[in-house]
Amino acid sequence: MTRKILRNVGVPILSFVLLLLVWQWIVVGFHVASYIAPRPRQAFLAVTQNWSALWPLILGTIRETVYGFFVGAALGLSLGVIMAKVPVLQRIVYPVLVLSQAVPIIALAAPLVLILGFSVTPKVVIVAWIVFFPVTVNVLDGLTHVDKDLLNLARVYGASRWRTFIHIEIPATATPLFSGLKIGATYAVTGAIIGELAASDGASLALYQEHANANLNTAAVYGTTMVMTAIGITWFLLVVGVEVFATPWQRRTVARRWRRR
């Protein structure tokens, strides 16, 4: 068990440290000027030394990411279920969904600002726009591939459609659902940043980075990128955590003690 934790946590940390080392070697080894690429330490300091100014912006980005993720996940799940249950709707809606993902997000931002203003809402919409799609596709795929014999068995027992859905179809879709959520989680922060770039009139993490870039403060640009990445990774890991907790049968041979008195 300890060895497993070491492997699952230790190795990713090690590869992260390795990445920083490579960064350091390249910058130092090739004598890269600090206005082109800072050393990792400088990027870190650019974040920590401006922490009081950055923290509210970070909170803003987190809020947009998380709200957008939940809206997108809920929308994605609902659409997946509806399309799986009503094949006619699937044929009508599916092409529209694919179309929605072909629209460049940047091109979407301008009209969204016109409609929704500069509030948090357009960012949430953009994040949800990105997140819902992998969720819908995976849920739809999961629901349409539930073992027909298992569904027949439920029918033989005399189960209602609702109970079959709750006790068979939904749990059978857990794995693809979480695949969709994990993809959505990694892209969510990107959506929030795009939203901030295109639909901010005031302070935001994306604009902070723009200003730093305009001032040739490369360390702050890199530092901000690291912060954005950290938000994305943290959110992804949280989703993975929920998955591990919610689907114990994928890793365990015996149920947790507290599940059954």
Binding site: L150, A154, Y157, A159, S160, H167, A172, T247, R259, R260
Partner: peptide
């Protein structure tokens, strides 16, 4: 047709859960 997300005990009681 045992469901992987239920324990042996919960698989045995599946019909009751469904009805």
């Amino acid at each position: 047709l045992l469901v992987p997300w239920r324990t042996v005990e919960d698989n045995i009681t599946m019909a009751k859960r469904l009805t």
